[in-house]
Design a protein around this nucleic acid. Sequence first.
DNA 1: TAGAGGATTGAT
DNA 2: TCAATCCTCTAC
Length: 204
Amino acid sequence: MVDSGKLPLSFYERDNVVEVAKDLLGKILFTSIDGKVAGGRIVETEAYSFLERACHAHMNRRTRRTETLFAPGGTAYVYLCYGIHHLFNVVTNTQGTAEAVLIRALEPVTGLPVMQLRRGMTVATQLTSGPGKLSQAMGITTEKNGIELTGSEIWISPGEPIHNRDIVADVRIGVDYAGEDALLPWRFLIKGNHYVSVPVKNPG
DNA sequence: TAGAGGATTGAT
DNA sequence: TCAATCCTCTAC
């Protein structure tokens, strides 16, 4: 049974983005877009902070795109990557502090037919196993950038808590340009889950 | 205003 | 291994 309540703003407004990234594992991400409800268990996340170079808002760099990162915790940050893929992030911390968690993979829970239709494929493990894939499956586009996660279009519900021993930390994907910050173990996965985007580099 | 590059994906 | 594809940002 899935708890349909929404996480409170206090969950997102904490000042430790790494903690929020870990706590988001096991939670259920829901969207109600175009009249269709879809939901998936979060199985992979990445933390980003203005303190490190992989973050778009590194050193508090404010541009039109990064402005959403400075919004209060509990805001959706959606941007276009490689001109093709919409990537969905959860803004954390308080207003003016640019930190966010990238949702990288889900395990489909409800609305499977909708996800299959949007993705144009039926294989469950390939519907939402990547940041671009899950956004497509859930119907999330840059149109949703800046909306609140306590609203009625995109929200997150408490799922079953994931025990610390079932969480694996690894380096983030695709941030080699960040120099030594690319080595931060800020990617978090549910151990043994088959819906993650990329297997851990150093298992165990 | 031009040019370069990107928190990816899927086909070859 | 590589092309797709376009928005964003920087430099001039």
